[in-house]
């Protein structure tokens, strides 16, 4: 019963939603019912799924770049106090700068729409990966660091055999958080870019539908985005579990 509780609750909520808009005769341009939303998806499944693929392409490209950049900068920072002093303030500055405020500049400077969107989404996805990996690299107990010193391990050997393995669970946890943020970043960047951007992602379809008052199609795109976010979160969580189980330990 517990297992099916979320599904039953969801179906009940959808039934209530449909009943409310029908009984209340709510105009479809204000709030379409679930059946109208499904109908909008069935009317153009390929168009919406292509838009989803386009947004996911930006999302995963940004996640990849954020993972490489975040891990590399965290390693550099943990290996050198000078690098830490140089990098940390800029990383924090990047985190606290609202993306909508800088996205127009990035889109103008970068020029190429796809690259611009990836840059914007990377900025949003970068910080959790960077912060988590930094925390993980410093997470090994001081006694183990002492043990490595006692046996004459140099800085890079300690990094390879102690600090990087200790950081792996933190990095994977950051990857899961950043997966969702990369999607948010991709959508925000698409919204800011509007017709000047990639002009093919789900956010652009949402804008387009709102301009045309095609609310069921707009909601269908929103549902696809929510589902994609859930799948990214669960997928990256499962990937983390598999990697840690394969590696052994926690």
């Amino acid at each position: 019963m517990m297992k099916w509780a979320p599904v039953l609750f969801g179906l009940l909520a959808l039934g209530l939603w449909e009943a409310t808009v029908r009984i209340g005769e709510v105009p479809v341009y204000l709030l379409p019912g679930p059946i109208a939303i499904v109908g909008a998806f069935i009317a153009d499944p390929i168009g919406l799924l292509q838009a989803l693929a386009s947004t996911l392409f930006v999302t995963f490209a940004a996640l990849f770049v954020a993972a490489v950049l975040g891990a590399t900068m965290a390693i550099a920072m943990s290996a050198s106090r000078l690098a830490q002093a140089a990098i940390q303030p800029w990383a924090v500055a990047l985190q606290v700068t609202p993306l909508p405020a800088i996205a127009p500049l990035i889109i103008i400077w970068v020029g190429e729409p796809f690259v611009a969107l990836v840059v914007c989404a990377t900025i949003v996805a970068f910080f959790p990966l960077f912060a988590n990996t930094s925390t993980g690299l410093a997470s090994a107990p001081p006694e183990l660091n002492d043990l490595f010193r006692l046996y004459g391990a140099n800085r890079w050997r300690t990094m390879a055999l102690l600090r990087l393995p200790a950081a792996l669970p933190f990095f994977l946890s950051g990857l899961r958080i950043s997966g969702g943020l990369a999607l948010v970043g991709a959508v925000v960047a698409e919204l800011v870019a509007g017709s000047g951007g990639f002009a093919s992602g789900l956010a652009y379809r949402i804008l387009e539908s709102s301009f045309r008052l095609e609310m069921p199609r707009m909601f269908a795109a929103l549902v696809l985005l929510a589902l994609a976010g859930i799948l990214i979160n669960f997928g990256l969580g499962a990937l983390g579990q598999i990697i840690l189980k394969w590696r052994g330990g926690t």
């Binding site: 107990p141 043990l147 052994g248």
Partner: peptide, 28 residues
């Protein structure tokens, strides 16, 4: 030449008992 045992076992959690004991020799 010096072995050190701490208050906690301070083993590498991801490594087997064998690999933990191998560690000082590996570092050498």
């Amino acid at each position: 030449d010096i072995g050190y045992v701490f208050q906690d076992a301070t083993l590498l959690p991801w490594a087997t008992a064998e690999d933990n004991v191998f560690l000082p020799l590996r570092l050498r």
